[in-house]
Amino acid sequence: MDKNKNILLQYVLQLADNAMILGQRLGELCGHGPILEQDIAITNISLDLIGEARVLYSYAAEIEGNGKTEDDYPYKRDILDWKNILLVEQPNGHFGHTIVRQFMFDCYHYYHLTEMRNSSDIRLAEIAKKTIKEATYHLKYSSEWMIRLGDGTEESHAKMQEALSDLIRFFDEAFIPSKIEKEESLKGIAVDCERIRNRAWEKFRSVCEEATLKIPEVEYPQEGGKNGLHSEQLGFILADLQFLQRAYPNSNW
């Protein structure tokens, strides 16, 4: 494959992997939510994200153009080939963790898609225009729950503060360019993730403030996922995700 094409492919996969892994994580919660209505809402977000991943994986398959399908990427790549940020592979924890993780992702996702609508790659721009509607809703949903739980009871406040402390070190990775994102050939195609950092952080800060939550200092942000270096979590996620395709290779499902 042509070098630039391969770079585009890697970029598209990085975006798809984020949506896929977070969608997969949220899917674990289906049937176990704290309130029936929130079970349904979380499941909706899971559906949206896996739907987004699917569109991106199909685009990846088109770029490769060698007969691969949307399923080849999520089901047949091993851990080092995955390029999602570490945040999305973190466990669901308690509902506070789920919400904080979601809110952090939504802060990134929303502004990322906002910019991606102007990508010179027409397909990516189209995908962004479509998915931003969903991402807007996700951000609204997670912001509301940040505030409700942060400013709810003493117990819920403590739980949210705990979740923030656990996860804050994963927030910045989304805004640190990966090797791929720095590629010259992606100029105008890829979103400059450093440029959206301020807006995302502004949103993050203002919601935390309304939620009466203190943002913990981060001495050492965790990164690596975007370049294929993951936490131990991802291997277990893939073991579930890929089980059937691995156990019964070359089957139709």
């Binding site: 289906c30 559906l47 896996i50 739907g51 991943a53 089901y75």
Partner: peptide
């Protein structure tokens, strides 16, 4: 989490929902 394709996964999640 173990559904064997993206199409099946989405179908199953929607069904359970």
């Amino acid at each position: 989490t173990r559904a064997p394709s993206l199409r099946r996964k989405l179908g199953l999640i929607a069904k359970v929902q």
